[in-house]
Amino acid sequence: MSSSPLAPGQRIGIAGAGVLGRLLAWHLSRLAHDVSVFDPADAPLPAFDGRGAAGFTAAGMLSPLAELDAAEPDVAGRGWHSIPRWAAVSAELGRRVQPAPHMARLGSLMVAHGPDLGAARRVLARLDQPMPGQPAWALPKPLGATALAELEPGLHGSSGPLHAWWLPGEGHLDTVAMMQALHDDAAAVRWQWRMPVARVEPGALHLADGTVHRFDLVIDARGTGARPALPVRGVRGEVVWLHAPGLGLQRPVRLLHPRHRVYIVPRPGERVLVGASELETEDRSPMSLRTAVELMAAAHSVIPALAEARILRLDTNLRPALPDNRPEVQVRDGLVRLNGLYRHGWLLAPSVVDDALAQMGCPPLPVDDTPSPDRIM
């Protein structure tokens, strides 16, 4: 497909109503295209059964620096591209959808217990040089006990002081609210639920019931459902939802540990998500007792007040990953494929969408280029 502008009024069919499908549908409908989205889910809201869109299960961390622990610099570069796009999208949605989807850019924290300081320093060694797209001011900053207490009073070790580092410029968002808002603010889109797409070809979506829908352009954003057209695999993610009244946590926290990658992310409504980044399995079964205990024990070890939190949900799902664990955009006449968000889905989505839009000859997502509010700290 050439980069000549895509004329308004094109009939566009999107396979998949995950974060990529919804973000594209929302934006393309605002550009006056006639958009239809097909998805096997029963409705736009999550079922939390391990088989819906992976974007609902994700914690929504926008952490380019922290992702360098287990990702290449290009992933971080895409993340720095995406954060101001999410800020602009969130602001746009907030003008028309209530309640507005929550997004915050207050930085994030990495913490380690004293015995794990060596492992933490090995991680931080990957983060102390600016990467492509990274603002010069966005480097990890060590925090003493007093500074940490001022930033997040509830964060302290259960068995001694924590080592802590503040990562400015990072953020997080409420994934469930954002997914719902992207749907609700795209009233012109034809949302076709309970309609799984079995095969995609240029200009046509073949549904599982045998019907064929033809369009000027089709977009395949099905994640693991894109097999066998793409060599995509599922990577299991697991999240514990907690209700923690009075906790007051404002920023995502990552516990640096020799064995675990555990994150703790605040959500509106006094909720907290605790999760682990990845498991190389396509098992969709419920969370095991061992995993639940390990996740909650790790979170409790750095936020003792979580001892009184109530367990709301144990959630699992599969994130789509390509062999190199990087996202991929394929554009040809009549067909666009986007896939491979892996465990960085919300961080990468606007960058991947902008890549596709550029190759389609469409304007990019809106951008909020105001300075990150945490720069003054």
Results as ranks from 00 to 15, higher is better:
residue 236 R to H: 10
residue 220 D to Y: 00
residue 218 V to F: 00
residue 278 E to S: 11
residue 263 Y to N: 09
residue 290 R to D: 09
residue 302 V to W: 02
residue 283 D to L: 12
residue 234 G to F: 01
residue 276 A to S: 13
residue 311 I to L: 15
residue 279 L to F: 10
residue 293 V to R: 08
residue 234 G to H: 02
residue 284 R to G: 15
residue 240 V to D: 08
residue 305 A to I: 04
residue 228 P to F: 01
residue 219 I to Y: 00
residue 265 V to K: 03
residue 305 A to T: 06
residue 233 R to H: 12
residue 217 L to V: 03
residue 244 A to S: 15
residue 227 R to W: 06
residue 296 M to N: 15
residue 268 P to M: 03
residue 217 L to S: 00
residue 301 S to A: 13
residue 223 G to I: 10
residue 290 R to W: 05
residue 229 A to S: 15
residue 293 V to E: 06
residue 314 L to Q: 14
residue 253 V to D: 05
residue 270 E to G: 03
residue 308 E to T: 15
residue 312 L to F: 07
residue 285 S to Q: 15
residue 248 G to N: 11
residue 288 S to K: 04
residue 282 E to I: 14
residue 269 G to L: 00
residue 306 L to S: 03
residue 241 W to P: 05
residue 214 R to F: 00
residue 243 H to L: 14
residue 220 D to T: 01
residue 213 H to Y: 03
residue 225 G to E: 04
residue 257 H to M: 12
residue 217 L to Y: 01
residue 299 A to E: 09
residue 301 S to H: 05
residue 218 V to L: 00
residue 311 I to W: 08
residue 307 A to I: 07
residue 293 V to M: 10
residue 306 L to P: 02
residue 287 M to R: 02
residue 315 D to H: 15
residue 312 L to Y: 05
residue 312 L to Q: 14
residue 244 A to L: 12
residue 292 A to T: 08
residue 256 L to M: 10
residue 299 A to N: 05
residue 235 V to Y: 04
residue 218 V to H: 00
residue 288 S to F: 03
residue 244 A to Q: 06
residue 240 V to H: 04
residue 284 R to P: 13
residue 311 I to A: 08
residue 223 G to Q: 02
residue 227 R to H: 11
residue 253 V to R: 06
residue 249 L to W: 11
residue 282 E to M: 15
residue 231 P to K: 13
residue 283 D to Q: 13
residue 295 L to R: 11
residue 287 M to D: 06
residue 245 P to Y: 08
